[in-house]
Design a binder for these strands. Sequence first.
DNA 1: AATGAATGAGTTTTCATTCAT
DNA 2: GATGAATGAAAACTCATTCAT
Lengths: 195, 195, 195, 195
Amino acid sequence: MTSGKKPDKYYAILEGALKVFAEHGFHKSQVSRIAKEAGVADGTIYLYFKKKEDILTSLFQEKLGELVEKLNNGLNDQMTAREALNKVCEIHFSVLEGNIHLAYLTQIELRQSDLELRKEIGLALKRYIILIENILEKGKKDGSFRPDFEVKLVRLLIFGGMDEVVTSWLISGQKYSLTAQVGPTIDFFMKGIES
Amino acid sequence: MTSGKKPDKYYAILEGALKVFAEHGFHKSQVSRIAKEAGVADGTIYLYFKKKEDILTSLFQEKLGELVEKLNNGLNDQMTAREALNKVCEIHFSVLEGNIHLAYLTQIELRQSDLELRKEIGLALKRYIILIENILEKGKKDGSFRPDFEVKLVRLLIFGGMDEVVTSWLISGQKYSLTAQVGPTIDFFMKGIES
Amino acid sequence: MTSGKKPDKYYAILEGALKVFAEHGFHKSQVSRIAKEAGVADGTIYLYFKKKEDILTSLFQEKLGELVEKLNNGLNDQMTAREALNKVCEIHFSVLEGNIHLAYLTQIELRQSDLELRKEIGLALKRYIILIENILEKGKKDGSFRPDFEVKLVRLLIFGGMDEVVTSWLISGQKYSLTAQVGPTIDFFMKGIES
Amino acid sequence: MTSGKKPDKYYAILEGALKVFAEHGFHKSQVSRIAKEAGVADGTIYLYFKKKEDILTSLFQEKLGELVEKLNNGLNDQMTAREALNKVCEIHFSVLEGNIHLAYLTQIELRQSDLELRKEIGLALKRYIILIENILEKGKKDGSFRPDFEVKLVRLLIFGGMDEVVTSWLISGQKYSLTAQVGPTIDFFMKGIES
DNA sequence: AATGAATGAGTTTTCATTCAT
DNA sequence: GATGAATGAAAACTCATTCAT
């Protein structure tokens, strides 16, 4: 799934970290706890990561990579722009609904970082946001979307809206189905941009 | 601005904290630094706040209170639902654009908290989200909004969208006018809900 | 009972301290807690005592004064040496059995002091130990005690023995009568010194 | 002397603590001072002891263990009860006279503990007090001691007496020989219990 | 004399990180 | 590469004491 050139322990540490971060939050997670979870010695972690924070960013990049890969697999050129947008939301919601640890990581832990880290995360997120942007552009070009909205603003409104829906679902204690929100969410967005 | 029943030092500490948190982030802000900024002794802080974290939540609640007060002053019953929504977005954006420290606090620092604190914040935010909900309900009732969208979902999409726009503006380095985004943002939302 | 030239608040503070020290121990007792117990302001304590430690030593001296006074009232020249020794032990045990707070203070808290303070306490105790010494001397003189024991050693053995009996009774949770130990204790001592 | 199954640093820390505690008292001894004395880093102490207080109790238990071992080596079944009691007192006094730091620890510092700790210490001391009890029982059985004294009381009177003699000698500034007190001390006790 | 708000010195403990093996 | 014992910097919080009122 992930590139494969990195050694097993690299991934073992990431998976351990995902679990520990999700349980205790980044600041309260001890490196030694992650090491134990990953089945390696404390020092070994520093053969693969420069600092504790690097584990967090690497984790995010790996997981975001997996998500983008899933999206790329899920999307194809025959789809209408609406179908594509629907697919994006569906995968976004279903991946997080299917991996609560990951959901905690992205919605809670990754926000627990200072501005520097947020910028790094923002950079990584760009790939995802550009993917949304491409769909919007395509819809504009083929005439299925209105020509008079600002792509750079609307991509934020769409991403931010989806993000808030996930966070709200998570904080509520996952009492309802997240994927069930895909339809109404896309309905709302489409009204805003459809011709 | 601040109510007045709390002693001056209470507000002095909050203002000091707002500045220090915005500069260094919550976790890297030392209590002694806040004390110095507020012009009080370290120990004095603990006469007004039980723990460092309490400064953060109090700050949030005070500032959210001010925001909601501004909104209540800005809104009135003669407004159409669209005008009301526009006003909310305008005040939301202009308050944060006018107080960068506060913007950092809400968009960056307040996210740096564990699940427990997030829930507390979520509770406080409810007042704001319900205010949006009321506008949506009103629009539905008077027929200016479509009857077939889910208020509880759309309020999240609207709040989340605005939130993301602010964060994006902040992380970009405030290179453009945030208030200039009010019109297009509301345009997009209105398309989604207008009859 | 106590001299009377000191103002009421002096004694109020001592009584408050006796209670608080007994409950929490000297080091864990806050001055403000004592103030509250005594019904005075924190600062008031420093009008009567120079430092927190002074409360402890004053308390000890007041209470020891009361004990010595009780002993002086209880003893008289018509008593045999044995009767006198018996009276000392009886008063010692009954006073502490009748005032558990005081027992905690003398057996536990007063030991929680550094060498300097212990010396001060030792000095105050001297009055008590000399009282025992006088009885031993008297018994030697009137022939009821053997002439061949070292008074300065035996007074320690007697005091130490009684002290250990009290501490042991206290730590055991006061499960048995302390005053019931007077007879056997004096029996043992008398065997050691009687002609 | 020390068992050997515990790592060297464990004992290095204990010896450092013994010295520092004796010099400054438990409460005024900083952990960092002990670390420096032991030649380890501050944090290292917490690899071997959970809390500062644990150093004190471990120290006590190690040293008491050594004392009891010395007593067991010094006693044998051929001794009369009187000889055994004499040996106990002799070893008790000589060990403390030969190690002033240890004497300070047992007579001053260990008393500086709250009730909870005192109970723990009392538990450890039980081994020692039972050793005295066994001698008393044996003397009763072989007829060298009177049958009519209460073993459970007298063991306290004996232990308390010896303890007070040591403390008094220590506080006096060790101006006289402690071991010289063994004979008279035992004489006094023997009078109390001998047939 | 009495108050109590304010002070700020002081210390244990944690834990990310290193490095000798 | 792997280990994990050792390191030591770092900071929130307490509370005895002061002093302006």
